[in-house]
């Protein structure tokens, strides 16, 4: 794929993500916020549709990579301490902040929610800052 077409897959993927969120709201009246759906699939009794959604999240890449012959991404490495700390922060933070990239980013911005805009700007900023510290201050 030539450099100038590098945006085609990301853009197509983004539109599909947006479309999935629009369908969820239109058909089921639900916000496609993944951290919320994951947590409530564990703690709430009305969990079947949530588990189905999560099953779809795992099925989607299987179909995408199989039918479109897209390469499987390389592993992010097996630094277990890093993985566990990152996972704990993502889980704790998304519950405390009531959402993640999907709920606040994709859906919240689509609903023009100032609350979601604040959350999105905050996690983008700390994400960029974290990468800056890890890549440019801690590593040479």
């Amino acid at each position: 794929m030539s450099l100038s077409f590098d945006f085609v897959w990301p853009l197509t993927g983004g539109v599909l993500i947006g479309l999935a969120a629009v369908l969820m709201l239109w058909l089921l009246g639900r916000i496609a916020g993944i951290s919320g759906i994951l947590w409530t699939s564990i703690v709430e009794t009305d969990r079947h549709w949530r588990l189905a959604f999560i099953g779809g999240l795992i099925l989607g890449p299987v179909l995408a990579h199989f039918f479109l012959k897209l390469p499987i991404p390389e592993s992010g490495g097996q630094n277990w301490l890093l993985i566990i700390v990152a996972g704990l922060l993502v889980g704790f933070g998304t519950r405390l902040g009531s959402g993640c990239t999907s709920g606040h980013g994709v859906c919240g911005l689509g609903r023009r929610s100032p609350r979601s805009l604040s959350a999105t700007l905050t996690f983008m900023a700390t994400g960029i800052l974290t990468v800056f510290i890890v890549r440019h201050l801690l590593t040479n």
Partner: peptide, 30 residues
């Protein structure tokens, strides 16, 4: 405060490994 502190912590975790919740779950497929 919970919104902003939560979002800030989430961003740090995202920046440490590169997974937010959706992609982390989807990557179980690999």
């Amino acid at each position: 405060r919970p919104l902003l502190i939560g979002a800030a912590l989430f961003g740090i975790g995202w920046g440490l490994y590169g997974y937010c919740p959706g992609p982390a779950i989807s990557s179980l497929a690999y």
